[in-house]
Nucleic acid binder design. Structure first.
Lengths: 161, 161
DNA sequence: ATGAATCGTTTGCATTATGCAAACATCGCG
DNA sequence: CGCGATGTTTGCATAATGCAAACGATTCAT
């Protein structure tokens, strides 16, 4: 049967997708392990859900409760009570928005920001350590390929350093 | 201080590591988002911790409770009660190990395995979709680079044959 | 401007997840 | 047999979670 000229190329592409998907899934699991280790450092200070709340807060200067709940994918009532505990732990503050007194605006306190920074830098160090163990010739290729992947996945690629 | 001949090379390497680390961190966040979407499909059937338990079980033919707790990083008592609920949901079975009657061996039931498979294939499809959107020239490079990364991150010390 | 829909948060209630410590059951060994 | 180690469960306390209802503040029509 006369195959189209692109036959081999198409097959090759399909194999590529399978191979890359497998590699990506493995990487995904590796990230989970890295996260777990990074988090172990602070598990005594806050719980994991509380930490995730702090992370969301760290990416916004301030936020109202509904938005936080939305970002975390939890019910507003859950967010309310988590914030209550984080206030008690002195990691965040909550104040009424004077422009719209329905809203309560939540903000990280210094201790909260410090905690997030600590975990992030721990994770960053761990990733950097892995990269250091990679053949240096691969590093540029990894950055380039991941940026393409991130782009295709609907995220901004590398932020300006 | 007289700089060693390798100065520029070393600096370049350092920049590489920073750039790659940033890209990896972004990818890590992307994976979290992908996971969240994949999980949304089954949130009505089991809770997230329960799902993670099923995943651990899916990688072993059978397991005793302590091992499961260990893999999940939770207390054995927590694992006990989670298994109790999964049994009630008909997703796993538990039986006494005749060789060592202290141990209770837990195993996935078909419904449990099906659930894990569904979520996994959903995630795999989502990753494949992203890869399809990537420039095809990048795919091979991504697989190669990720394999190197996984290798470097997989085991900190002893690489198996 | 006043009553009604709407937005944003909280509370009540029930269930699950979690850790710690103590109890309990089984095994292996001297 | 008795004792330490291994493996699981239970009691207790707290956190996380969703849903539904209550509540407060705003906005919008009429």
């Amino acid at each position: 049967m006369g195959r189209p000229p692109g036959y081999k190329y198409v097959m090759h592409t399909h194999d590529d997708i399978d191979a890359v998907t497998a590699a990506v899934l493995t990487t995904s699991r590796l990230f989970v392990a890295i996260s777990a280790r990074s988090l172990a450092a602070m598990e005594e200070t806050v719980t994991l859900p509380q930490y995730r709340m702090l992370v969301v807060l760290s990416t916004r200067d301030s936020a109202k409760l509904v938005d936080l709940a939305d970002q975390l994918g939890v019910n507003p009532s859950t967010a309310t009570r988590m914030i209550t505990r984080l206030i008690k732990a002195d990691l965040v503050v909550q104040e009424v928005n004077p422009d719209n007194r329905r809203e309560r605006v939540i903000r990280l306190k210094p201790a909260g920001r410090r905690l997030v920074d600590d975990v992030t830098s721990h994770r960053r160090a761990e990733i950097a350590a892995i990269i250091t163990r990679m053949p240096s010739a691969q590093r540029g290729a990894l950055a380039e390929a991941l940026n393409a992947f991130n782009e295709a996945g609907g995220r901004t690629s590398v932020p300006p350093g």
